[in-house]
Amino acid sequence: MSVVPAEAVSGGEALAQAAEAPWPGGDAAPAPLAARARLLPALAAVYRAQLSRARVARIPLLFVATFQSVGIMILMRGVVDGGVEARSVVAGSSVLVVAFVALNLLAQYFGQLRASGGLDHYATLPVPPAAVVLGAAAAYASFTAPGTLVTAVVGSVLFQLPMTHLWVLVAVIPLSGAALAGLGAALGLLAPRQELATLCGQLGMSAALLLGVLPAERMPAPVSYARDVLPSTYGVEALARSFDGNPDWLVVCADLGVCAGVAVVSLTAATWAYRRAAVR
């Protein structure tokens, strides 16, 4: 702390006196640091702020996401005729909404924030990196809920699937949302340029579309490996299985467990990417 009290610093003399204090003697005792923002309150604040952005900027995009998925199901109605294939179309289209918003839009958002210098705002606040990443990811995962629900219900009606176990969406949306949002955030923060972040987000969403909606049995081997690597696949499978009259809950839980595991990894990666991007 400076040896010159604030009140004294009015004339040039006081300033000159302080200037002569030998460095770092003038700052002998470090000033107390202001409190850090704690993780959960900061996460809640970021979540609330991000959610409010939906009202301003995201609602049209949420409509697009839902219409896209409903459109795909209507198209596929002419191709598949019920059974296992119909289940995977409905499940794939529903999870596609999650991929569109959580992966694609979040990658774009973080890419834009990084390119424009908007990350400086967060980087100059004493907030844990995890709070920024998790808050944004949670908000984007939440944006997907209405669209996913609408798509699943419309799909069930279109393909006459039972809606008894649609409650499984309560687990599918947050878990696949977290996995894909973490992936989207990491892509957006790591991409060296904003356009690349957008491109990665779009490609990720296209992959989720093709590999999730098209029936797995007809895919060539290399493509089905790619399908296994994509985290959205496990959300799709969990939802598809729940359309069974008597679902094998153990397998559903295993699928959701993979989603949760990927979510932890991808959100950790995104937090690391945020740290790296924030201090250049």
Binding site: A35, R36, A37, P41, A42, A45, L125, P126
Partner: peptide, 8 residues
Amino acid sequence: ETTGRLRG
């Protein structure tokens, strides 16, 4: 408000 909360 959000900035204030993130400032602790």
